[in-house]
């Protein structure tokens, strides 16, 4: 892709039109911000597909229809395949210049929807798959998913005498997707909203499948004050527990390479889901971060 040709999007030139409005997401919901901004980038000619999950649950409560453009709820495991069908149907009907976009949660993507996503990338169907990652199955009441990080208290990974909450690490979804040799993939965070919208804008130009994994805080599931949603999603990047990167033309690229990480304990202390963690467990998290970054820096330059 010729990136120089793509005009940057910002607060000034992004459309005034709102496409995700009047929804019933919790106050301060990070996922809803990701959906809102992505749809502003994609505009009137978009078809959104939402598997079961919070964004589907809060957007389509008859007769309150919060999507101000085409949108459909798919089966939980079938968002990518339904999106493929929409793209294929429009193509066959000669409806041109449309954008099919999926907004799926971490569970809907990294767990139950992974097979359909893999199929869509394999076929290189023209669609943008956006995974808003709030690190648990929120809509069903905060259960552990494949993207729940180590040490997270969820309703199925209770923190108690014997266990520190979740004992598995976050699945490496971005690299799993990239390993398909997808045309374009990126990670993002709602804490870096301009970076996110410009990645969506890049994905919009891809003639094939593209994927964005956006870190999206959930005050309800994370035990954070509603007003800090954007701040906490930024901190996750700044302390190195999340990263901003792209995969394009077969190459990984790190968009932010902090010289120094912000403090993990600071980030963790602010969230109810991590409150129980001991110093040793926090050290484990720091060590895992350092190991990951050593690899990323070595391989992705």
């Amino acid at each position: 892709m010729d990136n120089t040709a793509i005009k940057k999007i910002n607060a000034k030139n992004i459309t005034d039109k709102e496409y995700f409005y009047g929804h019933k997401a919790c106050a301060g919901c990070g996922g809803s911000l990701a959906v809102r901004q992505a749809l502003k980038v994609l505009g009137d000619r978009s078809y959104s597909v939402l598997p079961a999950g919070c964004m589907a649950a809060v957007g389509f409560i008859y007769p309150q229809m919060a999507f101000n453009s085409n949108a459909v709820i798919s089966m939980f495991p079938g968002s990518a395949s339904m999106a493929s069908g929409i793209t294929a149907g429009n193509k066959a009907l000669g409806v041109e210049d449309t954008h099919t976009v999926v907004f799926a949660g971490d569970g809907g993507t990294a767990d139950i929807g992974l097979q359909a996503l893999s199929g869509a990338i394999d076929r290189d169907d023209k669609l943008i798959y956006i995974c808003y990652d709030n690190e648990a199955y929120m809509n069903t009441g905060i259960q552990k998913s494949g993207l729940t990080p180590f040490g997270t208290k969820t309703t199925t990974t209770p923190a108690g005498k014997n266990l520190p909450g979740s004992i598995t690490e976050k699945k490496n979804l971005f690299e799993i997707v990239a390993a398909h040799d997808i045309k374009y993939a990126a990670t993002a965070s709602i804490g870096y909203i301009n970076d996110f919208i410009n990645k969506v804008n890049k994905a919009k130009q891809v003639d094939g499948t593209s994927f964005i994994h956006v870190y999206a805080s959930c005050p309800t599931g994370w035990g954070t004050p509603t007003e800090t949603s954007v701040e906490i999603a930024k901190e996750a990047v700044d302390c190195g527990l999340w990263y901003l990167a792209e995969y394009e033309n077969g190459e990984f690229k790190l968009n932010r390479n902090p010289k120094e990480f912000k403090s993990i304990p600071e980030y963790i202390k602010k969230q109810g889901r991590f409150k129980h963690l001991t110093d040793d467990q926090i050290k484990h998290i720091e060590a895992a971060r350092d190991k990951k970054w050593a690899r990323i820096r070595k391989n992705w330059g």
Partner: peptide, 27 residues
């Protein structure tokens, strides 16, 4: 004259078929 979609499972076959139908095309 049709698109042949090589889906990776039957779940996706029916899911895609619904996507096709949802824009008014025949699946």
């Amino acid at each position: 004259k049709a698109e042949f979609m090589h889906v990776e499972s039957e779940h996706s076959a029916i899911s895609a078929a619904m996507g096709v139908s949802s824009v008014g095309a025949r699946s």
